[in-house]
Amino acid sequence: MLKISGGFLLGVMAALLLVWSSIGGLMFSERLSPYTVEETTARIQQNIQAAGNGWSISGLRNPAKPIEAEGGNVLPVLLIEACSAQYSGPILKDDGVRFLSLLMPCKISVYKKSDGKVYIGYLNAGMIGSLFGPLVGDIMAKVVVDQQGFLVMDPSKPAPALIIPKTGGESGGASGAEAGC
């Protein structure tokens, strides 16, 4: 009996260890971009604007700026903030999941790594949604579809101009209040 219980506990611990070590990779995804940081960002912004479903760009942050202001260097990183009141509204109205406002607005990060290549990082909305019941799960499933559309890079289209939203802009400061998220 002791051996069975021990084996069971060992199995549980191994499973927990596996989940613990892979949870980061499950929550976030990363993909390579063929364009510069600015062009990748601009193309995603353009896709967001064309996505419909109430999506709008609510901010563009540059988390590197405060570090540069302190005299340090980090490779460029731009954080695109997008919001859809159509999706955020039902979640914000439900007291039970209102804390998920922490994840709003929806963010996509574009950054360069020391290999000189540009990457896109984003939250795995589908996985997050499945953890918080049917309301959030259904909404997040739709967000996932739209999010995939944001990341489509069509080389036949010319490079659009980077959009610097009036609120926030290219800074490390707060932004996005006017977009409703």
Binding site: T36, E38, E39, A42, P158, A159, A161, L162
Partner: peptide, 10 residues
Amino acid sequence: LVKDSAGRRA
């Protein structure tokens, strides 16, 4: 003239 996403000449 065409500019790139950062406003530089393309």
